[in-house]
Each structure stands twice: as C-alpha cells, then as structure tokens.
Design a protein around this nucleic acid. Structure first.
Length: 339
DNA sequence: AATTCACTCAACCGCCCAGGA
DNA sequence: GTCCTGGGCGGTTGAGTGAAT
C-alpha cells in the first residue's frame, strides 16, 4: 500500500481551469437532484471530468444559491476589517459573519482592497497622532490616496481612481440605503439587463413558466450565438449560461434559486413536497420538465443508475470558446461604479 | 495602434482536521 | 491507537481586462 495521502483525483484525467456553462449546469442540476453527500464521488456521478474538490469549490464559491454577488457594501467592508483585526486571516470565520459571502471572495477583497485601506487607515491614525490638524478633512477612503506615496506614480493614480470610485460607491450606498440592489454597479447591471427584463413577466417573476422560451435562449447560446457584446456588464464568471438561459437579473437570483429549490430539496429522484406528498404544483412540474429537457438537449441527462455520461470534449470546447466570454470577464470591483 | 503594466478574482494546491473503520 | 478518507481552509497562481504610455 502506498504511504501518504492519496491524491484527491487523477490529475491526468480531470479537466482543470475555468468552468464552462455546461459544466455549471450539470453540477447545479445534479446537486439539485441528489445533493452533495460525497464530493469525491460527485463528479463521476454527475458526469463531470472534474476533481471533487473543484466541484465543491465551484459550488460553494459560485453556484450556491445563497451566494451574494456584486460589490461589497461599506458595511461589509468595515465588518471585514473589524473581523480581520480580531480573527486574522481566518477567512471562513470572517465569512461566517457575512451571510452570502464566501471566504474566497472575502480573501480576494481583503488582499486587493481592504488591506491597503486598512494599512492606510492605520498610517492615518499614526499621522493624526503626530498632527491633529487634518481630522475633519478626510473620509476613510481619501486616506488611501494620501498613502500612495510609496507607490509608483501609475500605481498611485490607480489607487486614487479606485478609491474615488469607492467614495462614489459608498456615497451612493448611503444615499440609497444599504440595500445591495441599489448600488451603482447594480444599477448598471440593471440597465444592462434590459434584454433580461424582456424575458421577465410583468409580475416581475422570472419567466420560467414558459420553458420553451428559455430553452430557445439557451440554444441561441449553445449554437454559438451567445453574444458577449450583448452582455456588456457580465458578472464575473457568473454562470452566464444562467443569465443567457434564464435571463435573470442579478437581483432575482434568489427568486430563481428559490424556484429551483422548490423542485425538491435535495431529494434523490422524484418531486415531493416537504410533507412527503407528491407536489401538485404545476409550475414545479413544469420546471422539472424544463430542467430535464435542458439536460436532454445538452446531452447532460443522467442515466437512471445515477451516473451520467461525461461531458464530451466537444461540449466543453463549444462552451469555452472565447467569444462566449464565459470565463474571467473581469468586472472591475469599483471603477465601473464611478463611470 | 501597439505595448506595457497593474489590478482583479476564479481556480488550484497542499496542508490540516475530524470522523469512521 | 492507527490508518484512511473526505471535507475544509488559507495561500498562491495565472489569465483576462482596462488604463496608461
């Protein structure tokens, strides 16, 4: 027997790198149906050529229904800074205090923004200790600009722009209240989702009640017509397939996931309501049919035994083509908000 | 227009820990 | 008590992007 820890997966046989929409869909639909009792076995059962850890990470950091996307509010940032003072780099602990935020996201935000701000704040405090005269002049973020003396000019400028954007963002937030959906970036997203809105019923509900329409959207994408240009402010690696398919504004993500949840709370096979009775809800049935249809059309449907055919390379390739811009369409954290 | 550079963040890596056999 | 396995965590990497030159 080999000593030491067995590798979590055969790196030769697993796909790595960015997730394609088809993989996302496959993962989502599998977890919706079967849950995730065993991450290691999940990829095989779901027909994904991925390491179980990778699936877990993707689910937890991105696909999970309650993951909150978008820029951090000032309150959240302050909370992170405060918590970091007491907890240090224990990102999961910090994340547990911020509902909807993942440790990875918090870690990224800390490393890219808050660390600088935290440092500059402490520098400011120190400077104020030396000279108390400027106490009224600066907001928390303007302090960042003053701290940029140790950076090269371009970096300093970038910092300044970034922090100005932050000012704008937080000002706007305070004007609009702390509601996430009111942030400028989301207003932009809201604008950019005008096409999205067209697929939403007048009642504001996600138009899932007409599966054919959604599927039509999907196959526009699958057929290579997914037009990145029409998606001017995509969420970063947000499962664009979801946006493309469902045309859901970000604000409606929760509704969407609630809807998916209603398909059955991680019950293997069959749709049953919580009380154990067969659901008579027409919409649920339709939704389930629609999911099955999607899977069928994508070639994602699982066999009855629970294991699905692996995604063929053509499927991965198809959805990974750069024109789809599925991966890493980096949304500037703050700069966009200032535009 | 082309190139360089800094920034962002999803994803990966490797270690640690808990729980079960 | 020991070993094995799966899950979780924190650190790091690298590709994509936009701004500056």
């Amino acid at each position: 027997m080999g000593k030491g820890r067995a590798p979590c997966c055969d790196k030769e046989k697993v796909k790595r790198g960015p997730w394609s929409p088809a993989e996302d869909l496959r993962l989502i639909s599998f977890i919706q149906k079967h849950g995730h009792q065993n991450w290691r076995a999940l990829p095989k059962q779901a027909g994904l050529l991925r390491c179980g850890k990778s699936c877990r990470l993707r689910w937890i950091n991105y696909l999970r229904p309650d993951v909150k996307r978008g820029n951090f509010t000032k309150d959240e940032e302050d909370a992170i800074i405060r918590l970091h003072e007491t907890l240090g780099n224990r990102w999961s602990k910090i994340a547990s205090h911020l509902p909807g935020r993942t440790d990875n996201e918090i870690k990224n935000v800390w490393n890219t923004h808050l660390k600088k701000r935290s440092v500059s704040k402490s520098e400011n405090v120190r400077q104020r200790g030396e000279s108390k005269e400027s106490s009224m002049a600066t907001s928390s973020s303007s302090s960042c600009i003053s701290s940029s003396s140790d950076k090269n000019s371009r970096g300093a400028l970038a910092m300044a722009v970034s922090d100005k954007a932050q000012d704008f963002k937080t000002d706007e937030l305070s004007n609009h209240g702390s509601s996430r959906a009111s942030s400028p970036s989301e207003e932009l997203e809201g604008l950019s989702s005008s096409s999205i809105s067209s697929n939403i019923t007048n009642s504001g509900q996600v138009g899932v009640s007409n599966p054919e329409d959604q599927v039509g959207s999907l196959f526009n994408f699958i057929g290579g017509h997914y037009d990145a240009n029409n998606n001017t402010s995509e969420e970063v690696n947000k499962p664009d397939i979801l946006d493309a398919i469902f045309d859901i504004p970000l604000e409606s993500d929760l509704e969407f996931w609630n809807m998916l949840d209603s398909l059955g709370p991680y019950q293997p096979e069959g749709i049953q309501s919580d009380d154990g009775t067969q659901s008579s809800n027409f919409e649920e049935v339709e939704n389930n049919k629609w999911l099955l249809y999607l899977e069928h059309e994508l070639g994602l449907e699982s066999k009855d035994g629970g294991e699905a055919e692996p995604l063929g390379p053509e499927m991965n390739d198809m959805v990974m083509k750069p024109e789809g811009h599925y991966h890493n369409t980096v949304q500037p954290y703050e700069a966009d908000a200032a535009k």
